[in-house]
Amino acid sequence: MLGLLATLPWWAGDQYQIHLAALIAVYWILVAGLNLVVGFTGQLSIGHVGLLAIGAYAFAILAGRYEWSPWIALLASGSIGGVCGLLLGLPSLRLPGFYFAMATMAFALIVAEITLALGDLTGGGVGLAVPGFSAPFDSPAGFYLLLLGIAALITWFTWNVARFPWGRALVAIRDNPVAAESVGVPVFRMKLAVFVLSGITAGVAGALFASLQSYITPDTFVFELGLFFFVCIIIGGRSSIVGPLVGTAVLTALPELVAPLAKLGNLFYGVLLLAVVLLVPEGIGRLFEVLLARLRPERAASHVLEPDTERLAAAIRKGRDA
């Protein structure tokens, strides 16, 4: 799959399709991190566009005005995104769901105002030109491959988090925080850790996004973009990585490739979201799961619950000796 995507520049119809694929990769870098927060931990952040903007402006200012190496500026953008995630998460992650969502929205709106107000630094409403990366990543195809590589790496990170015990506990925090606490899971600390991670991926995505667009203004980071990321995950489904990935790709590409949909704009997203929430509330990721489960039906097991006390005693002894 990755191999196929890597050869895209050689079979894509035109430059525009490469640009579109690059855009999907950039969005996914952010959504992949956000997915751990929203889809796995159940913290409904709708303001990640604020972190994207911070990463983008950090990159534009450091690599553009101060002429840092784009690579160093990229790392700096990720770090700044992480620090901002920490500063946003510390006070807000203790809030109950609805208020947390409002806090992230307020954050995004504040960032938008600040980028407009700090004209000396950000160019205000006029915006900033953003430098590209050095060869071989200076061509559209080269930059696309760079983005694909970073996106693949981050997908691998989140896939690992999703399948190993530390990340499984995130799902426990989402579904039953009381049960999670009762076995010792440090709920707040883990929420914060994963939120900081999403800040880093948002910062990195912001830097790459700015470089891809080559020019940014405050209008590039409208609040709807934050909702868009959120919707990609909701449509994709909770506790899934493939679902949100498909969601991001489809929601980014479809309006661009199918002209009539583009005219509908936000209406298209609205209708799609409504359809998913009403028809498959657990998202398309769950749809895959259900179809897979159909393919290998579970045997009807006996319902007699018969403990094997000798085996239980052995398991307990083993635990005591461990």
């Binding site: 990170f157 989140t158 690992n160 988090v161 015990p165 530390w166 850790a193 994963v194």
Partner: peptide
């Protein structure tokens, strides 16, 4: 193992 070692 924490977040970092898990991701890797």
């Amino acid at each position: 193992a924490g977040l970092l070692s898990t991701a890797l």
